[in-house]
Design a protein around this nucleic acid. Structure first.
Length: 207
DNA sequence: CAGTGTCG
DNA sequence: TCGA
């Protein structure tokens, strides 16, 4: 199944590209099935901050490297905590990267964040990658999420936007290093998933 | 190293 | 929302 290149609407928020409705419903369904296959090989875990607080999201990865956090700190690892390597990035997910950032290097990591109805993600900067000149691509699936974009430093004025299932967000250029996070999920706004919640896929070049 | 969390 |  190809990536839908029509019927999309692109916005710009502080240099962050938001492509509304990038994925058709059929593409979203197919990618959710891909995520289920990834999770069978690399089960979702509840990550902990280095200080021992649980994150509210469940997390797994695909690709050569997966982002992990635990008592040892934030880092990329070549294996799931089980000791198994991460499964490959699904072809249809990779196709989204190729379509929206065609000149970038290939993605090395696809972080899978599963937000339950009450899950959030605090404001942070993606700073564990060696080359921040490479973009970050984020795919939203399931319930709507209130996404907040801030500044290069902590604090200051922020802008919020709702991300809906099938939207694709690109952080590149100066926007690559902006603070961002998810304030809340709106349960029941999508029927894509079996249960209330949201799945976000984040594609990155790591090395 | 860690605030990718929690509180007011 | 945003500072601690």
């Amino acid at each position: 199944m190809g990536v839908n290149l029509t019927e999309k609407w692109e916005r710009d928020v502080r240099g962050v590209r938001v492509i509304d409705g990038f994925l058709s419903t059929a593409e979203q369904v197919a990618i959710v099935e891909d995520v289920r296959a990834v999770a069978r090989m690399a089960p979702f875990i509840r990550p902990m901050t280095p200080r021992g607080r649980p994150l509210s999201v469940r997390m797994t990865s695909a690709g050569a490297l997966g982002w992990v956090t635990d008592q040892k700190g934030y880092r990329y690892e070549v294996r799931h905590p089980s000791g198994e390597p991460w499964p490959p990035i699904p072809v249809r997910v990779r196709a989204v990267w190729d379509a929206v950032v065609p000149t970038a290097r290939p993605p090395e990591s696809c972080l899978v964040n599963w937000y339950g109805p009450d899950a959030k993600m605090g404001m942070h900067v993606d700073r564990d990658e060696a080359d921040p000149a490479q973009p970050v691509v984020s795919i939203s699936l399931g319930d709507d999420a209130l996404f907040r974009i801030g500044n290069p430093e902590r604090g200051g004025k922020t802008e919020s936007l709702w991300l809906r299932s099938g939207d694709v967000l690109v952080m590149e250029g100066p926007a690559r290093l902006l603070h961002h996070g998810v304030d809340r999920i709106a349960p029941g706004t999508s029927t894509l998933l079996d249960a209330p919640g949201r799945i976000n896929l984040t594609l990155r070049v790591v090395t």
